[in-house]
Amino acid sequence: MSARAKPRGYLNPYVSGGFLGVVLFLAFFATGNGLGASGGIARILVSVEDRVVPEHVDRTPHLLAMAGGDTDPLDNWIVFVTIGALLGGFASGLLHGRIRPETQKGPRISIGTRWFFAFLGGLVMGYGARLARGCTSGQALSGGAVLSVGSWAFMFAVFGGGYALAWFVRRLWI
């Protein structure tokens, strides 16, 4: 019975939310910063770019701010939060026996289709996250908790965009 009551052994969503809220609060309390993910990814990528094409980075204003000249794009708090999230996700998965190579998809599409749309969705989302100056973690979660007007508008836009398109792409998921 208990296996059915808690499918896959995930934590109760309200308890998860409470935990996540406490983590977010402690982050703000100790450091003045919230959480984030896309910023860390961006900086890691820029550091790769800076190694391959340093002149190009120095000529592109948006990249220049992160990695111009001798500035090390990895010398930033958010990079460590991102790496920490990777490690924490791995540790929890290991502990709960959920680490296995697999593709999780809706029942009506092929694995190849899922991969394609995962990449496409990631592309759109990565672009949107930079345009909005933060992702679900850095804008919605962190900015929402400190009551930033822009973060709340952003949050409703994310749900709005998702719900607006959901019906048309339902074949992907249900």
Binding site: A37, G88, V124, M125, A132, F159
Partner: peptide, 24 residues
């Protein structure tokens, strides 16, 4: 922010993750 949010919503439903969850 709103335009980026709409794009993210679209990316979310197409791709099934957000940046943070995809890392996990």
């Amino acid at each position: 922010g709103i335009v980026g949010g709409l794009l993210m919503g679209i990316g979310f439903i197409l791709g099934g993750f957000c940046p943070g969850t995809s890392i996990v």
